[in-house]
Nucleic acid binder design. Structure first.
Length: 226
DNA sequence: AAGTAGCA
DNA sequence: GGCC
């Protein structure tokens, strides 16, 4: 498996992009990186596909097993959708709110996630789940691990759109000190391999307005759940 | 268990 | 920011 943080990102998609606008890879861990601006060329296809998914599976706030309502509103697409309620965290084939299967993962979602994983050194990523998170100003995600998946062999691919955020990238215990990673519209974080179970979270989103997405941050988290 | 408040 |  190729994992060369120094090699430039070379995709036909970026051939016409100005040199100073070329995406850049920044390592944040042994097998973790941020791909700056990587999602930007997909946006024209990504946003209409997002609208279609949300029409079928609207954002809703969920309750944690501890009984607290999350500040982030969630939806999902793909074979499996992540949900939480008083009984616990789980992946389900159907949206509990409609009883219907989660919307199919749009091709453009899959292509972007697979391309990002490949750029980060993880070949043949086949996500079967995309959790869609909406953060309004003040919304946050406290430190947690993604550990409801059946296998940890596949990486996590996290796409940021809209308002900026500070991503917390921690260690293997909640008490370990976290790195603070600023994330902008179009940035993608990928972590896997030895870093797959690292704690992570998001600081409260600051007030602001994004020209394309308005007063919100949208995050896609791609995973292989099964 | 992906949460908050209160206190240092 | 860290503890519970």
């Amino acid at each position: 498996m190729r994992y060369d943080p120094m090699s430039p990102i070379t995709l036909d998609l970026f051939a016409d992009v100005e040199p100073e606008q070329q995406p850049r890879r920044e390592q944040i861990g042994e097998q973790s990186c941020v791909l700056r601006g990587f999602a930007l060329p997909w946006l024209d296809r990504l946003l209409p596909a997002l609208e279609a998914v949300l029409a079928a599976a609207p954002f809703r706030q969920m309750v944690t097993p501890g009984g607290f309502t999350m500040s982030v509103a969630l939806s999902s697409c793909g074979t499996w959708g992540w949900t939480t309620d008083r009984s616990g965290y789980k992946y389900t084939r159907n949206d509990p709110q409609t009883g219907l299967p989660w919307p199919e993962m749009p091709e453009v979602f899959f292509e972007l996630a697979q391309a990002a994983a490949r750029e980060a050194g993880f070949t043949d990523f086949v996500p079967d789940s995309c959790l869609i998170n909406r953060y309004i100003p003040g919304a946050r995600m406290s430190l947690h691990q993604d550990k409801n998946e059946g296998s940890y062999a596949a990486p996590i691919v996290s796409v940021s759109l809209g308002l900026p955020a500070t991503f917390l990238f921690g260690g293997f215990e909640r008490s370990a000190k976290s790195q603070r990673v600023p994330l902008l519209h179009g940035d993608i974080v990928v972590w896997g391999g030895v870093d797959r179970l690292r704690y992570h979270g998001v600081l409260p989103i600051k007030e602001g307005y994004h020209p394309q997405l308005g007063e919100q941050r949208i995050n896609f988290t791609f995973r292989t759940a099964e």
